[in-house]
């Protein structure tokens, strides 16, 4: 398992290729990847730039926890997560989740679990810049409508 939180832009496909070279040859039957990229629109408005704030230390800790949980729940060989923070622009990759497994079902399920859990719990916050230069915090993420809700427990809010 490898988790990287970095400000620098990255090429997710190069990250997958490089990490796969460190894995034992011939043991995995597939890799499922999710690459999250920045849109140039959100909530009906154009977006020209975004800044991602995070809680250093807590982000890595929680992403590592979710990868460890995925590796326990499914027959997964290895996983890699790269997530950016700081300033970024439309079409740039924000996050990579890659999961290697002997069989595809486990890799698909584990990859989906990791990205959904990350979006619920990893302490990152998006702040968008509109074409007029207005900066606004994104107040909530959209949920994966197919997420198994019982699999991804949102942290308790102050009002519950």
């Amino acid at each position: 398992m490898k988790v990287v939180v970095q400000a620098e832009a990255f090429d997710p496909y190069e990250e997958v290729r490089r990490y796969e070279q460190t894995l034992e040859k011939g043991k995995h039957g597939g890799v499922v990847t999710f690459v999250g990229t920045m849109r140039d629109f959100n909530d009906g408005q154009d977006v020209v730039a975004m800044s991602l704030d995070h809680y250093p230390g807590m982000t890595e800790k929680h992403i590592e926890q979710v990868c460890a949980e995925a590796e326990q729940r499914w027959d997964v060989m290895d996983s890699l997560v790269v997530h950016r923070y700081g300033d970024m622009y439309p079409s740039e990759p924000i996050v990579l989740v890659a999961v290697w497994s002997a069989h595809r079902a486990e890799a698909f399920d584990a990859c989906r679990f990791i990205i959904n859990y990350l979006k619920e719990r990893a302490p990152f916050w998006k702040r968008e810049t509109t074409p007029a230069g207005e900066k606004r915090w994104v107040e909530h993420n959209t949920r994966d409508p197919k997420a198994e809700v019982n699999d991804v427990v949102a942290p308790a809010r102050a009002d519950n």
Partner: peptide
Amino acid sequence: LAFFPPVTGG
């Protein structure tokens, strides 16, 4: 101790 709004990463 940290206080913050709902998270919006990924």
